[in-house]
């Protein structure tokens, strides 16, 4: 009797939870489907169209835009620069972010929430505004150069604006909080006693890190790498404002082409950017996982 009643209740509950699960994931699924997939399909279709200067986009089924991209040294240069900058930024974020995330995860201070807010704080400033801030720092009359010239360390201002270095620094500054927050939450979930166990077994901090912390934090490391790499590949405001007219990355190139009205080529560049990001992310994720999973 009692058993039957409980079973009935639990079945009802399960049915109910299935309904509410649908309600929970429904809106997000709809937004993703309608707002992302449909435009991507349309964009892909565009990339196969033809561009005729006076007529703009003409319906066709050709891979002309893709061929143009991969046979032109300029576009290939933009492509490799983008991949290189995104990789450098990702690695730099990981190296700088891990110690910070570790300290944040392990601190026992009651100001922890404030410290986390400080990490997030840069995200309150939009990319464009922040890049403008960097400009006042990097410019030939900016703070750094004023200091260098003022102390007589250099005679003429050092060219910092409109260099690859400036763009890399700018993107790292944007991406670092994402890496730190991702790593921090994963490190926090690792039992501190496991680290102490490694120490008590004779592991110095270096061995503890490589043998215990790193493999256990790997899911977070992979997530952080994916997140910052995607953000780096798709950076727009920072390369435009800090890189200047000479320095080109993929996202500005896409927008530039569309401004010129060349939708087929812009769409093709978008697709190349998207596919490359996806492939490199999957490769990075798989190779990291394979090394530590037996």
């Amino acid at each position: 009797m009692a058993t039957a009643a409980t079973t009935a209740v639990s079945v009802e509950e399960r049915g109910g939870s299935r309904l509410s699960a649908a309600a929970l994931i429904g809106p997000a699924t709809f937004i993703v489907a309608a707002g992302l997939l449909i435009p991507i399909v349309i964009l892909f279709r565009y990339s196969l169209n033809k561009f005729v200067p006076r007529l703009m986009m003409v319906d066709a089924l050709t891979i002309e835009s893709y061929v143009k991209f991969f046979t032109d040294a300029f576009y290939l240069g933009v492509f490799f620069t983008t991949v290189k900058v995104a990789m450098i930024c990702t690695i730099a974020c990981l190296i700088m972010g891990f110690p910070l995330a570790y300290a944040l995860a392990r601190t026992r201070t009651r100001y922890k929430n404030i410290l986390i807010m400080l990490v997030v704080l840069p995200l309150f400033v939009g990319n464009a505004v922040r890049a403008a801030g960097w400009m006042t720092l990097f410019g030939s009359k900016g703070m750094i150069n004023a200091g260098l010239v003022g102390f007589g360390l250099v005679d003429v201002p050092v060219q910092m604006m409109f260099t690859e270095g400036a763009v890399i620094v700018g993107i790292i500054a944007v991406n670092l909080p994402f890496m730190v927050l991702t790593l921090q939450s994963v490190i926090e979930s690792i039992d501190r006693a496991v680290e102490e166990a490694a120490f008590s077994l004779g592991a110095d901090p270096w061995h503890m890190f490589w043998r215990v912390l790193w493999p256990l934090a790997l899911p977070g490391i992979v997530a952080g790498i994916i997140l910052t790499f995607i953000l780096g590949m798709n950076a727009y405001a920072t390369p435009v404002l800090l890189g200047g007219p000479e320095f080109k990355m993929m996202a500005p190139l896409v927008f530039g082409q569309m401004q010129l009205g060349n939708w087929p080529f812009g769409a093709a560049v978008s697709f190349i950017l998207m596919t490359t990001t996806l492939v490199l992310t999957v490769i990075a994720g798989l190779s990291l996982h394979k090394r530590y999973r037996r």
Binding site: D191, V194, A203
Partner: peptide
């Protein structure tokens, strides 16, 4: 701690979850 040669058994056991039993003991 790592130079003291003390064997410690933790309340939570603190086994390395990513290593096998033998690898834990070999550590």
């Amino acid at each position: 701690a790592w130079k003291r040669n003390t064997g410690l058994v933790f309340q939570s056991y603190a086994l390395f979850p990513h290593l096998t039993v033998a690898q834990n003991v070999a550590f």
